[in-house]
Design a protein around this nucleic acid. Sequence first.
RNA 1: CGGAGUGUAGCGCAGCCUGGUAGCGCACCUGAUUUGGGAUCAGGGGGUCGCGUGUUCGAAUCACGCCACUCCGACCA
Length: 442
Amino acid sequence: MRLSRYFLPILKENPREAEIVSHRLMLRAGMIRQQGAGSFSWLPLGKRVLDKVCRIIREEQDRSGALEIMMPTIQSADLWRESGRYDAYGKEMLRIKDRHERDMLYGPTNEEMVTDIFRAYVKSYKDLPLNLYHIQWKFRDEVRPRFGVMRSREFLMKDAYSFDLDYEGAKEAYHRMFVAYLRTFTRMGLQAIPMRADTGPIGGDLSHEFIILAETGESQVYCHRDYLGFEVPGEDVDFGNAAEIAGIVGKWTTPYAATDEMHDEAAWSAIAGDDKVSARGIEVGHIFHFGEKYSKPMNASVTGPDGKEHFVSMGSYGIGPSRLIAAIIEASHDENGIVWPESISPFDVALINMKSGDTECDRVCNELEAALSAAGKDVLYDDTDQRPGAKFATADLIGLPWQLIVSPRGVAAGEVELKNRKTGERENLSIAAAIARLGGIA
RNA sequence: CGGAGUGUAGCGCAGCCUGGUAGCGCACCUGAUUUGGGAUCAGGGGGUCGCGUGUUCGAAUCACGCCACUCCGACCA
């Protein structure tokens, strides 16, 4: 992609309304445009990141056995009356009427609707387990939206819903999602720590929030240092092997880890001083078992091996991709701008032509763009006639992991310069070596 | 929803107290010179001063009402 043909409305100055760093950087890098309180348009650069994040989420959901569906954003109030939540849900739910004066709502979540889908078709335990997920825009009329896309009213959400015959099956489904989440966040370059979350009236121990550590985190969190060294399961993990999956979950839930609300001073003080990690954290995922909360009132049941009807045991598993992007920026930036992990960077390489219009520079840039594109890399080629300083500032701001700098001086020597955004390291390479190096980046 | 604050050009701001032709920087357009860390010079375009009502000869400026946005708190992914 040539920058001269792209839509990248970067801002030199900080917009007044943006306080936290991710909000500021997303606005300055031209990723999003605020349309109102808690309401954002995603511009091309932001949309690319969103797509990359969703792709990883999909791959890991699919790998774990979940199946993607899509459901309407506008739902009938009748469904919500069945579960009792139409009255129970507060003003966060946007309630609307259609032309026939029927009560409708813009979905803040989809347990009722997915349960309705399930009960319409699934009648036997032989069709279980089942896990259906969707990635969709949701709306919650927050009292106080804030922090940019971190806490917006309209937001993208991945929700998976699992259905099982009984608690034991539901627990295995929960474990699979747990492991899928570990893999998902790791692939995005994040260290996410599962922390026991409040299960409320449901009870039990099957509720975890996945927290990433960031200095600007929204809440105080506490965990054992062991977590920072734990290995995340690889691609070869067998989701069909319940014992293996349960073992991984066991390992990841044994050391102490808690958010402020669940913090236990007694257990905490039992940990050796050097092993205590007390930090700020941001919640990027939440998994939750809720049993028959919806299946019972909505009559979602299957016939079991015993010939009797059983209300299915359910769980739900959320990740907010839009919020996650802000969280990643909070965890990965410096004074010059965003520092993207390679797996979700909007482009792989910033190709910077230091002197657009110079025959040799143009020729080398064209060659590099073609070769890297052929190698499957997304290249953002800065072919504008701005001055070097402005180009560097832009490249640093939008945070692509690699900057490939082509200058008259370098080209005369048959070399280009490769800069690592994260470390700032620079290296002069021959053109062929640069292609080989960047083309090989996974 | 309680508390605090801000609305003036695309963005960042001054002007308001003490009413009298709407300004600055960046960005944008034209031309020239520049080219390794957000260039320089010259010229130019762009504003219902958030909205409404009132006071006044006259309102960005004063009064009242409303709206929007931000921050702190309660709440939440």
